[in-house]
């Protein structure tokens, strides 16, 4: 069974351009259908404004869809009660693009990673600390950094903190919204390696949002190409890269800077 089944998903925003102007509708996500299989890496690619991040927000229930359904393990998450929604949010976590603005600068690492446990479990302080330290080790953060604050870390290390926070509730799915776009290539490689290792170890499913096609080719099983709120093409990585069908996909693949000599 598919983990996610997305049917006719829609997110329209009404934007007023003046006080008495008629609102115009921006179709950020326009009637899209796709599914996510358990244990796979599904990437959503496209340029800024194509609706890929809106799709991520809809899956995370940060935004409410204006139409359509999102089935997770057979249940429509747009119709869940608040208790059921809490359970859902434990299973689906997110890591963000910018490791600078997605961590609270006034909290130390220990507190940042412990927060999801405090909100969602009945563990006592000692158990929480143990769990946090285990997960820190898993993502390559040293134990003695427990008391440190985000500004004392490099970009790559901060992204590791973000990954630890997403991982601590042992989710089934992690939505990765441009997780390596803000990082240097060598740090990017470290984080990609970590994501691949963690996926193997915990049998995770990733929905990977990115505009970098080289990264996407490396990490994904399947790819969805979005353009102005629509899905224009979706296929296995090998097929899509070898034989792109839609003009926009061809353009996108053609624009990847290549190292060939």
């Amino acid at each position: 069974m598919n983990l996610f089944e997305i049917k006719n998903l829609q997110k329209h925003y009404d934007v007023k351009k003046g006080l008495f102007a008629k609102p115009t509708t921006i179709k950020a996500v326009n009637d899209i259908n796709f599914h996510v299989k358990k244990g796979e890496v599904l990437s959503i690619v496209g340029e800024s404004g194509c609706g890929k991040s809106t799709t991520a927000k809809l899956l995370m229930t940060i935004e409410e869809p204006t139409g359509g359904e999102i089935f997770f393990e057979g249940k429509d998450i747009t119709k869940l009660s608040s208790n059921e929604l809490k359970e859902y949010r434990k299973k689906v976590q997110i890591i963000f693009q910018d490791p600078y603005s997605s961590l609270n600068p006034r909290w130390n690492v220990g507190k940042i990673i412990a927060e999801p446990l405090k909100l969602n479990t009945n563990l006592n302080d000692k158990e929480i600390k143990e769990k946090v330290l285990t997960i820190m080790k898993k993502v390559g953060l040293k134990e003695e950094w427990y008391e440190r604050y985000p500004h004392q870390f490099s970009g790559g290390q901060r992204q590791r903190i973000g990954i630890a926070r997403a991982l601590v509730l042992e989710p089934e799915v992690i939505i990765c919204d441009e997780p390596v776009s803000a990082l240097d290539v060598s740090i990017q490689a470290q984080v990609l390696n970590l994501l691949l290792d963690l996926q193997e170890e915990f049998n995770l499913t990733y929905v990977f949002i990115s505009h970098d096609l080289s990264v996407v080719e490396h990490i994904s099983d399947r790819i969805i190409v979005m353009y102005f709120g629509d899905i224009v093409e979706s296929d296995n990585v090998e097929t899509l890269f070898a034989n792109p069908q839609h003009d926009y996909t061809k353009q996108l693949l053609g624009a990847i800077p290549k190292i060939e000599f």
């Binding site: 290539v185 060598s186 990017q188 490689a189 470290q190 990609l192 390696n193 691949l196 290792d197 096609l213 080289s214 990264v215 080719e217 490396h218 990490i219 990585v237 890269f241 990847i256 190292i259």
Partner: peptide, 22 residues
């Protein structure tokens, strides 16, 4: 060399293999 090898290059680096890092 380390910098060049840390880039996932389609066709050159095996998919899902661990990348070299600096």
């Amino acid at each position: 060399k380390a910098l060049l090898n840390s880039i996932p290059t389609p066709g050159k680096v095996k998919r899902k293999s661990r990348l070299e890092t600096v």
